[in-house]
Design a protein around this nucleic acid. Structure first.
Length: 424
RNA sequence: GGAGAGGUGGCCGAGCGGUUGAAGGCAGCUGCCUGCUAAGCAGUUGUGGGGGCAACUCCACCCCGGGUUCGAAUCCCGGCCUCUCCGCCA
């Protein structure tokens, strides 16, 4: 959510940002509602003032045992008026809120302009695309040969778009989660948290998934709960409605959760295998920081995520997303894309975003710059550190051997009971 | 799931339908004072919003949402959460 006052005073800037994003929204209408709202407020508040004073007067008269009938009658009418105006105010402000919730964050100036993914700018590459003396297989085949991923079973259990891991495959999932959590907590200074996988509506609005993306979310109708699409949602909401003491910033959290996404509208090749599934595992990094530091913090966050891939020896590239590609709540975003030799393409395994004060304002997350200063909104950031299925794709495809086995990168071996390779 | 209790300011805790933004205590801050570990005295300390260049001023907020009333922290209804007992259960 943007600061309404900011929108009021920087209408052009807001519209410019919307143009860059390719989003059409009637900002002028929002501003009209805003001024109507303020005008109504003035009217009601004046009446309230009048009524407060009169009610006081009535109280005094009654205490003295005097008659207050006349005043009482007058105030009855005033109360009626207030009631009518109140419902108008309520309606207008409800409209303002619902419109405001649909306005995306202002795009950072360093984000490239562009019309689509082709305009994202590659920031750097790490490692090289591995060479093979044979034609590398895709992960689906490898998983089948090794008996570690079974899409027949997952389809039987839940339909298409799910994964079923078995044996060393299941072990690999567990190993990766532990490896990543250890890396971030022991080396990068994050505190590990383990939240519920179901959250209420307020959380989803707080981080910006709702109201816009409700169709993409799994919802438990009876309780109005949502399955978390990412740990970002529960973890960012840890501090919803709080005022954090300045000295405790920055706060870094690392969290494993399963992630649930309906992925409505996906089709074709994308929906095969592990590349796009309804449920996947992810270790997420979330930061709460002072506003003036968020530009540096996103770079550090990105590096923390990159280190996962470096440790695993997987070739990747980092891209700076162009305005059109940046998600609703973010102001700036880097994607990390890992190379999958079997697929022959780069796969997004991490998005590292700066949400500036956008989520903080929605979720009411503030801090005190100094012990007695007025509270201000924090900046929130998060990044995958990283998402598992596509890393598994890259891992299997990168480390596959001619004999059908897959070598386990050294960093992961302690988590695999010292195993060096998975053989058919 | 059944029965009961309760949700008040940073914390503890009072509150009859009428100067209660809210007693009292603790904590914090600011003065004054006292030579001793730190006590005493006085003052002060919430959030959001509107109006004004400003001093300032007004409105709202005692879990949330409705209602009754001239007036609600106080009464009524609905919801959420916490605690205790019982039941069920990994």
């Amino acid at each position: 959510m943007l600061d309404l006052r900011f929108v009021r005073e920087n209408g052009e800037k807001v519209k410019e940002s919307l143009r860059k994003r390719g989003t059409k929204l009637d900002i002028d209408h929002l501003l009209e509602l805003d001024s109507k709202h303020r005008q109504l407020l003035q009217e009601v508040e004046k009446l309230r003032y009048e009524r407060n004073r009169a009610s006081n007067e009535i109280g005094k008269l009654k205490q003295k045992g005097e008659d207050a009938g006349k005043l009482l009658e007058q105030m009855k009418a005033v109360s009626q008026e207030i009631h009518v105006l109140d419902s108008e105010v309520k309606e207008v402000s409800a409209n303002i809120v619902s419109l405001s919730l649909l306005v995306p964050n202002i795009v950072d100036e360093s984000a490239p302009k562009g019309k689509g993914p082709q305009d994202n700018i590659e920031v750097r590459r790490w490692g090289e695309t591995p060479a093979f003396s044979f034609k590398p297989l895709g992960h689906i085949e490898i998983g089948k040969i090794l008996g570690i991923i079974d899409f027949k079973v997952s389809a039987k259990l839940a339909g298409s778009g799910f994964a079923f891991y078995r044996g060393y495959g299941a072990r690999l999932v567990r190993a990766l989660i532990n490896f990543m959590l250890d890396l971030h907590t022991e080396k990068h200074g994050y505190q590990e948290v383990f939240p519920p996988f179901l959250v209420n509506r307020d959380c989803m609005v707080g981080t910006g998934q709702l109201p816009k993306l409700e169709e993409d979310m799994y919802r438990i109708e009876k309780e109005d709960f949502f399955l978390v699409p990412t740990a970002e949602v529960p973890v960012t909401n840890i501090h919803r409605g709080e005022i954090i003491e300045g000295e405790s910033l920055p706060i870094y959290y690392a969290s494993y959760t399963a992630c649930f996404r309906r992925e409505a509208g996906s089709y074709g090749k994308e929906t095969k295998g592990l590349v796009r599934v309804h449920q996947f595992d992810k270790v997420e990094l979330v930061k709460f920081v002072r506003p003036e530091t968020s530009n540096d913090e996103i770079e550090k966050l990105l590096q923390d995520a990159e280190e996962v891939l470096k440790s695993l020896g997987l070739h990747y590239r980092v891209v700076n997303l162009c305005a059109v590609d940046i998600s609703f709540a973010a102001s700036k975003c880097y994607d990390i894309e890992v190379w999958a030799p079997g697929e022959g393409e780069y796969l997004e395994v991490s998005s590292c975003s700066n949400f500036t004060d956008f989520q903080a304002r929605r979720a009411g997350i503030r801090y005190r710059p100094k012990p007695d200063a007025k509270p201000e909104y924090v900046h929130t950031l998060n990044g995958s550190g990283v998402a598992l299925p596509r890393v598994i794709v890259a891992l299997l495809e990168t480390y596959q051997q001619k004999d059908g086995s897959v070598v386990i990168p050294e960093a992961l071996r302690p988590y695999m009971g010292g195993m060096e390779r998975i053989s058919p």
